[in-house]
Design a protein around this nucleic acid. Structure first.
Length: 491
RNA sequence: GACCCCAUCGUCUAGUCAGGCCUAGGACAUCGGGUUUUCAUCCCGGUAACAGGGGUUCAAAUCCCCUUGGGGUCACCA
């Protein structure tokens, strides 16, 4: 394989901007980033936008935003520049025609004048005969002089690579040696009729000029690799090292697609998953360190990452696990930070208006404090906190059931409200707790019975943070009113 | 269809390269219990896997072969 042990590590993430940054791409980017940081190398971002039809500026933005959100800052690339730019493939492919000429001159590539129609027909026939679909190399035998003359005369043609006899071995850091017989490889097109070059060729040019030492990419590129190696060799260029990482699968082990729910980083970002949760989740999807550690900070990942730790088989992504990590990292963050991050979600949820957050801040902090350890992502807050902001419009079914658990429950709540009226302190939940315990004892009720009923009346739910904490934040006035008027909601 | 890759609990995986320490470990999920005003946290415990078949060997989850299953690639897309 190549001998680049002495060159500084340079890796790249090379997405094509045809949509959002999806989970799989994000993980590929992460692995590249980790590898670069681990080896004090350089992480290059290159946008492969040569498919003019499908590439969009919006997609470029989505990719950059997604990477930024995850904290995968690139050293060279869009908005950053660098020594080996430009970093948009569309701006560099023109310069690759000299490589094409070199190949032509060496007889390693040839002009093919076959029409698309003829090639299509060929393919149809081969398909009908159940043969391997190959270009028949008709133009390979053309004399170079004649080919040049016809090309010079303006006859439309493409350039094909003349695949030699033999075999190519891909030395893959994850898969070991993978052998491809050249008979299986078509004389593939490297330059289109419009003189622009094809992906497999552009990659070779780009990776060479950007001095990429390690290509870490999805396994879907494995069968492209021998073609690229062939090109590197024909051009006397250094072949980079390879690591093809397994794909991420959807439930059912099919290829992950939009049908499987949120697959773009943006969607998770909007739901309010913390970036460190996403990073930890992505990292452990197809990579492991040992049989002990599941929680990794970015710093630890950089320290502990290795290509050897990447597994060979495809990984199904599991939302449950993401949720677990999401909850973990929210608990781990500071309260003030979470409040800050939560505000946009509360605004979007209609609980706050821009600007309102400031005046109500102390109370908001108390609310978030109660929910912080109970959520997996920030947008859950909008639902969890709504009963503080809005009058109850109804009760959840279990809450109704709770209130009807005994015939005199509403009456009890009325009395409870009176008992509470005398002893309520919005700064100290213990006061309400003491009052409630006393009330329960006097009424010969279990604490939990009156507490659960009160919870239902106050919040419309049976599941909330500790009741007396909720009361303190909800406030005396609202608490008493809701306890007395819950009858109206039962209709 | 051809070529290539892959195969341990439901899921992510450790163990496989250097065969015995594996009556296969952890995490998520799930089930049960403890703490508790509900939930969450926390603690304790349970269910659950080496795809199948042949070899090699004193010994195989680990090595070899076959089968099966899954995935990827076969464009003037990237």
């Amino acid at each position: 394989m190549s001998n680049q042990a002495n060159s500084p590590v340079r890796v790249r993430f090379a997405p094509s901007p045809t949509g959002y940054l999806h989970i799989g791409g994000a993980r590929t980017a992460l692995f590249n980033y980790l590898f670069a940081r681990k080896h004090q190398g350089v992480f290059v971002l290159r946008i492969e936008d040569t498919d003019r039809g499908r590439s969009t500026p919006e997609a470029v933005k989505a990719i950059l935003d997604g990477l930024r959100f995850l904290g995968l800052d690139w050293d060279e690339g869009p908005e950053k520049g660098g020594e080996y730019g430009p970093y948009f493939q569309s701006e560099r492919i023109a310069s690759y025609n000299r490589y094409i000429d070199q190949l032509l001159a060496r007889g390693r590539a040839y002009r093919c004048f076959c029409s698309k129609e003829r090639v299509d027909r060929l393919r149809e026939e081969q398909k009908a005969r159940k043969e391997r679909m190959h270009y028949d190399r008709k133009c390979r035998g053309l004399e170079a002089g004649e080919a040049d003359r016809r090309a010079g005369a303006g006859e439309p043609h493409v350039v094909r690579f003349a695949v030699p006899e033999g075999r190519t071995v891909v030395h893959d850091h994850i898969r070991g040696d993978v052998v491809f017989e050249h008979q299986e490889i078509d004389d593939f097109i490297i330059q289109r009729a419009d003189r622009t070059c094809i992906y497999n060729f552009a990659v070779v040019g780009d990776d060479t000029e950007m001095k990429i030492t390690h290509v870490i990419r999805g396994e879907d590129h494995l069968s492209n690799t021998p073609k690229q190696i062939l090109l590197f060799r024909a051009l006397d260029l250094t072949v980079p090292e390879y690591a093809h990482i397994p794909l991420i699968l959807g439930p059912g082990r099919e290829k992950l697609s939009k049908r499987h729910g949120a697959v773009s980083v943006t969607e998770y970002q909007e739901k309010g998953y913390l970036p460190e949760a996403m990073v930890n989740f992505l990292a452990r999807l197809g990579w492991s360190y040992d049989d002990k550690q599941e929680i990794f900070s970015m710093e630890e990942l950089i320290e502990k990452f290795s290509l050897e730790g990447i597994s060979k088989s495809g990984a199904m992504y599991d939302l449950k696990k993401l949720n677990h990590l999401g909850a973990h990292y929210i608990r781990k963050r500071g309260l003030e930070e979470i409040v800050e991050l939560a505000i946009p979600h509360l605004v979007r949820g209609g609980l706050l208006h821009e600007g309102e957050a400031l005046s109500g801040r102390p109370r908001l902090v108390r609310m978030v404090a109660l929910e912080k350890d109970r959520i997996e992502h920030l947008s859950q807050l909008a639902d969890k906190l709504c009963f503080y902001f809005q009058e109850l419009k109804g009760l959840e079914a279990p809450a109704v059931k709770q209130l009807q658990s005994r015939p005199d429950m509403l009456e009890k709540l009325g009395r409870y409200a009176e008992a509470l009226a005398a002893r309520f302190d919005e700064r100290d939940p213990k006061v309400m707790e003491a009052a409630t315990r006393q009330f329960a004892e006097a009424q010969k009720m279990e604490l939990k019975d009156i507490a659960q009923a009160a919870r239902a009346a106050l919040t419309g739910r049976t599941v909330t943070p500790p009741l007396f904490d909720v009361m303190a934040v909800l406030g005396k006035e609202a608490c008493l009113r809701r306890l007395k008027e819950v009858r109206k909601l039962l209709g």
